[in-house]
Simulated assay, not measured.
Amino acid sequence: MNWLAHLLLSEADVESRLGNLLADIVKGTVREELNSNIQHGIKCHLVIDKFTDSHIVVQRSKDRINPSYRRFAGVLVDVFYDHYLAKNWSEYSHVSLDEFTAKIYKSFQAYQGEIPVTVTEMITRMAVEDWLGAYRNVAGVENTLERISKRLSMRCLRRPSSFAVRGASRREVRATPLTPAVSELTTHYDAFEDDFQEFFPELISHVQNWCLV
């Protein structure tokens, strides 16, 4: 799942939500220096990822992806599922999507704890451009894929020796912009939505059980 789902499934405090967000961005020693509540959010993110990556319905969605994008199928399905979450938001939340995202943005921008400067800058952009609310539109999905392409390319250039994206090589990341893959969403639109609607309630139950442990 991508950021919207991670934030919805997170425990409802700013540091847990930050952890769910930062798990994709902050690595290594920088991650280890974050406080325990943020670390808890990171653990929740990893629980979500592990369950998602191993689920048979998610694999079915990945198998729908054209072979030219197959090494990025996990990334694409994560983003596509967030689109369906935004589209069907009222089925999963008692507050509107706009109310939820506004609360997220406000709490992140007001946070006074220690987080990397680059994350603070990203959070500002997220709020200004409404990255979370934009998932509801296909155009927003396309913009998300463009940002992911840029982030993966930059990560590859900074840390070439340790780079890995679900089996993708460094050359593939540089040569394969993900933005055109939005066509995979439109081509299999109803099938992806059926997959999401079958999978997401199971993910919710899994995360709720994990929080009770």
Rank of each mutant, 00 (worst) to 15 (best):
R155W: 14
R147F: 05
P180S: 13
S169W: 05
S162H: 14
R171G: 08
L145N: 01
R151H: 06
A181I: 03
A164E: 08
E172R: 11
S169D: 04
R151C: 05
E146N: 12
R174E: 06
M154A: 15
V173F: 00
I148H: 05
M154T: 13
R171M: 04
R155M: 13
L157V: 15
K150F: 11
S162Q: 14
S169C: 04
V173G: 00
E146H: 12
A168E: 01
I148G: 03
C156Y: 06
S161G: 10
R158S: 08
I148N: 04
S161Y: 09
R174P: 01
R166E: 07
L152I: 02
R147S: 03
P160G: 09
A168G: 05
I148C: 04
V165M: 02
E146I: 03
V173D: 01
M154N: 12
R155T: 11
S169E: 03
S169H: 06
R147A: 01
A168I: 02
M154H: 13
R159I: 01
G167F: 07
A175N: 06
E172P: 00
K150I: 13
R151K: 12
K150Q: 11
A168H: 02
E146G: 05
A181V: 02
L178S: 05
E146Q: 11
P177N: 12
L157K: 12
A168T: 02
L145V: 00
I148Y: 04
A168R: 03
A181C: 03
T179F: 07
T176H: 05
G167K: 09
S169N: 04
R174G: 04
V165K: 01
T176G: 03
R174S: 08
P160S: 07
S153P: 01
T176M: 12
L152G: 08
R170E: 00
A164I: 02
S162D: 10
I148E: 00
P180D: 11
T179K: 15
E146F: 06
M154C: 10
P177S: 13
E172S: 06
V173R: 02
S149H: 09
A168K: 02
L152Q: 06
V173Q: 01
R151W: 10
P160M: 04
L152D: 02
R155L: 14
P160N: 09
L145H: 02
R158W: 07
G167T: 14
L178Y: 09
G167A: 06
P177I: 15
C156E: 10
G167N: 07
L152C: 10
E172Q: 13
S162F: 15
P177C: 15
F163A: 06
L157M: 13
S149Y: 11
R158F: 11
S149I: 03
P177V: 15
T176L: 11
V165P: 07
E172W: 04
R155H: 13
